[in-house]
Amino acid sequence: MAEPVVADGANAALHAVSSAVLAVTRHLSVHEVLQVIVRAAARLLDARYAALGVPDEQGSFAEFVVEGVSDAEWEAIGPMPRQHGMLAAMLRDGRPMRLADIRREPEFEGWPQAHPVLKDFLGVPIRDGENVLGILFLANRNPRGFTEADQELLTLFAAHAAIAITNARLYERNRELTVVAERGRLARELHDAVAQKLFSLRLTAQAAAALAPRDPARTVAELAQVERLAAEALAELRAVIFELRPADLADGLTASLRKHVEVLDRAYDTRVRFVCAEPVDLAEDAEAVAFRVAQEALFNALRHAGARTVDVHLGVVDGRAVLEVSDDGTGFSRGDQQNGLGLASMRERARSVGGVLTIDSAPAAGTTVRLEVPR
């Protein structure tokens, strides 16, 4: 009869940890993943309080996440726990610990005045091989306390939590490396394209200044060259700025689009505006498609349409995310919609995430690119 209980417990553990794994797939921070794990552990064993401590290199806690304690209560409790009491014992030993009443243990040293009263206690390490990623604590499963089966269940949960924490850390590290690589690429482009143009412009301006007193005709020619080089440098700089974007939409679609529009509004004479009443959350692949479609539509409006104003709207209509990029530029005929200006690419991107792309344009009537994506 015991085997079905174990099987049911294993299924419950796998179900509870799925929320932590989901947090990783949504690209949340490590801290947010820790919070999801603590919350899932408390629900799994019906514990009143739960906590997860991440050890540092000094044998203390670098981070301590709690569940069951409000922000006001946590603030009243005081500083994060360090090297003392039962927590220190678990940091030192790194083994599971199950107690009927923590207050009766020799290592118990009391707690701050605002701290909740803990009785029954269960703690297990979260391990990646020999490395302890964190220690998971549960308390107050009254009236019966924690059993040996509970300890086995929480140990199984901790094994899956280790995967979630490791993946979250790898994601954050990869994001940092991506940002560094993107900055390096932009620095090279700025040096290769813009810096050299500006260097030539400076030399030409110096030559014009030297010629001015004795050869006005050549001075005029040199100044014309200065104007041409300045225009080329500005065009190159705008092209680089246009590519500035969050490397992996780390801030979400809404914030990333807002930042991108602000950059373009500063870089171009055209007025570029962003309107969004509330943040719109999509799956990662759908966010990437929406952002790329917005980029392409903005590029067309700014480089080809001669628009005075471009508006970007993002919102939700009938349960679907809707992105619109509208300009008051030259527009184009229906025949031109079939090819050119990256329109085919935008349609293909939309189809890849189950979305629909529509384009409303006519000569001298501006253009509206509309993307609808299931949420």
Score class of each variant (00 low, 15 high):
V132P: 00
L133E: 11
G134C: 08
G134P: 06
G134K: 04
I135Y: 14
A139D: 11
A139V: 08
N140S: 10
R141Q: 14
N142T: 12
R144I: 10
R144M: 07
F146V: 06
F146S: 04
F146M: 08
T147R: 09
T147M: 04
E148L: 13
A149C: 01
D150V: 06
Q151H: 01
L153A: 09
L153I: 10
L153D: 02
L154R: 03
L156P: 04
L156D: 01
L156I: 05
F157N: 02
F157P: 02
F157I: 01
F157M: 02
A158N: 01
A159E: 12
H160L: 10
A161V: 04
A162P: 02
A162V: 00
I163C: 02
I163S: 11
A164S: 08
A164K: 01
I165D: 05
I165W: 03
T166K: 15
T166W: 02
N167F: 01
N167R: 11
A168Y: 01
R169V: 03
L170S: 07
E172W: 02
E172S: 14
R175Y: 08
R175C: 09
E176Q: 14
E176N: 08
L177H: 08
L177I: 08
L177Q: 11
A181R: 14
A181P: 00
E182A: 15
E182V: 02
E182T: 10
R183V: 04
R183H: 13
G184H: 03
L186P: 00
L186D: 07
L186N: 09
A187C: 01
R188I: 10
E189W: 00
L190W: 10
L190N: 12
H191L: 15
V194G: 04
A195M: 09
Q196V: 12
Q196S: 14
K197A: 15
K197T: 12
K197G: 14
F199L: 15
F199I: 09
S200C: 09
S200F: 11
L201H: 11
R202F: 11
L203F: 06
L203R: 15
L203E: 15
T204F: 06
A205E: 11
A207H: 09
A207Y: 05
A207N: 05
A210V: 14
A210R: 13
A210Q: 12
A212N: 10
A212D: 13
